[in-house]
């Protein structure tokens, strides 16, 4: 039953993914947290893992979650589910794709979907930032902590790399180094 439910959930995710990659982070985050399969923090860690391993995020996520919920059969079910809508839809339109591209309703649909996908990325970014900056919710202590300074400095450095158009893995390496440094400082001085 778990396996079928995984298949269905990831089928929905595959069928509602437009714009690829980060546009579906919000969708996946919602689905896996609603079902209690992952915590928000795990999803954030997972984005980093997915960025440093081959394959599309959606597929990586499906395999990972599927395996955690129901082992290898779960991984197979979830991955099949996320890929199935692509297979079905492409097979249907492959013969008439010229007409499909030229269709004004397809163009219209995309005109609505594209800004929505960007809105979803923005929403994912803000909710993830909130989770990272204030993991224990909003309070005076959490605003005035060393953690916040560390987070701000790291984010500043990473944003500088974004501004310099660095490759994603450089951003990940830099942020990991910052984390390592900060963790060691905390450990040594017991802050």
């Amino acid at each position: 039953m778990d396996v079928l439910y995984l298949l269905w959930t990831f089928f929905k995710i595959g069928a509602c993914t437009f714009g690829g990659g980060y546009a579906m982070v919000e969708l996946v985050k919602e689905q896996v947290t609603v079902n209690g399969w992952m915590e928000v923090q795990e999803v954030i860690d997972f984005i980093a893992i997915s960025e440093s391993t081959p394959g599309p995020i959606a597929v990586n996520m499906a395999t990972y979650v599927g395996y955690n919920v129901a082992g290898i059969p779960g991984a197979i079910a979830a991955t099949t589910g996320v890929v199935l809508p692509s297979l079905i839809i492409i097979m249907i339109i492959a013969k008439v794709y010229k007409k499909f591209i030229a269709n004004r309703f397809v163009a219209g649909g995309m005109r609505g979907l594209r800004p929505a996908a960007i809105g979803l990325i923005a929403a994912a970014g803000i909710s993830i930032a909130a989770e990272v900056f204030l993991p224990f919710g909003f309070s005076v202590e959490s605003i005035l902590s060393y953690e916040i300074i560390f987070t701000l400095v790291t984010l500043g450095l990473c944003m500088y790399l974004v501004y310099k158009k660095a490759k994603p893995h450089f951003i990940l390496i830099l942020s990991a180094a910052c984390g390592l440094l900060w963790g060691s400082i905390q450990n040594l001085f017991g802050i």
Binding site: Y22, V25, Q41, I44, D45, I47, A48, E51, I121, A124, G125, I128, A129, V132, T151, T154, L155, C158, M159, L161, V162, P168, I171, L172, L174, S175, A176, A177, C178, G179, L180, W182, G183
Partner: peptide, 11 residues
């Protein structure tokens, strides 16, 4: 802990 901050930048 650091990488989570980096992910904000990636998004």
């Amino acid at each position: 802990a650091g990488v989570r901050v980096g992910v904000i930048a990636l998004i």
